[in-house]
Amino acid sequence: MIPRYALYGLCLATDLPLKAPAAASSAAPDLTILRGGELPADHPAPTGEVWAAADFGNGVAVRLTKTAAGWSLLYPNTAEVRFSADRAQASIHPAPGKADILPMLLASSVPTWWLNLRGDPVLHASAVARDGRALAFIGASGMGKSTMATLLCAHGATLITDDALRLEPSADGYRCHFGPGELRLRPGAASLAGYFAPDCANVSADGRTTLRPSAQAAELPQLGALVIPQPSREAATLRCERQSLVQAGFLLNSHTRVIGWQAEAPLRRQFEFFNELARRVPVVKLTVPWGPPFAPELPGQVWQQLSAEAA
């Protein structure tokens, strides 16, 4: 049987080895992705209606195209994922020399695109939980999401996800789905790995220090607050600034995990989903005295201030 993994509330079956929690043996796959053949060096972009295209600079880009056979998710010069029209099956094809990147794509980027296609927008966020309540840190790459999550995990919190957060509306707010269970630290924050046992740390295919801090909780944590970290070398104390509803909606819509939509339906869906989220959950900017080193009392103060906002 093809191994099955639990990611972002999905059951993902794949013959590629993922560093992700195993799904329950009884779970039926939402998506099955099998390793396909290598792309030719001069692989052209597929033809069809472009639904999304984004260029992140430094040679990283992505393009989603509706093709005659289904969907193509192309990472130029890296890989292509070909989804069937019903999106239940897919194959993933590496560019020459890029096969070792495939598990990383499957653990984060590919499921978030798939979820958006299904109508489930995903935030660009890291999240942690304590006593069943979650804090999500949102922001662009390099703005402190993973660092904040790492700090709180080092002081007793449970990791929900790093980089991509899927939220599910519930009667009492929003529940947070678990990601792969791994933190990826930038070089400047790699010293935070010292808070954890040595067997938690590893190195990813793209050279980052990774941490797998603790086992996941059984229950999906309830989201308490959405936080935009504002790292500051000058600030001496934490400062919390609640955002107006319209500003909160703007911030959430500006920090989606999937960007570059050209098709109207997913744009509309994101707008509706994240504005409703802004109405129901506090969104705050948090000025944080930045390190390393970080003050030892900082994690406790973060929980205290943000719990007050979420109350």
Binding site: V246, L267, F271, N275, R279
Partner: peptide, 23 residues
């Protein structure tokens, strides 16, 4: 498309994908 956010208004321009807020 637009929606009321309390007394404010959020608007999404569908061709540019840009988000606007009104007081």
């Amino acid at each position: 498309i637009s929606t009321a956010m309390g007394a404010e208004q959020a608007i999404l321009q569908l061709d540019s994908g840009k988000y606007f807020g009104l007081n």
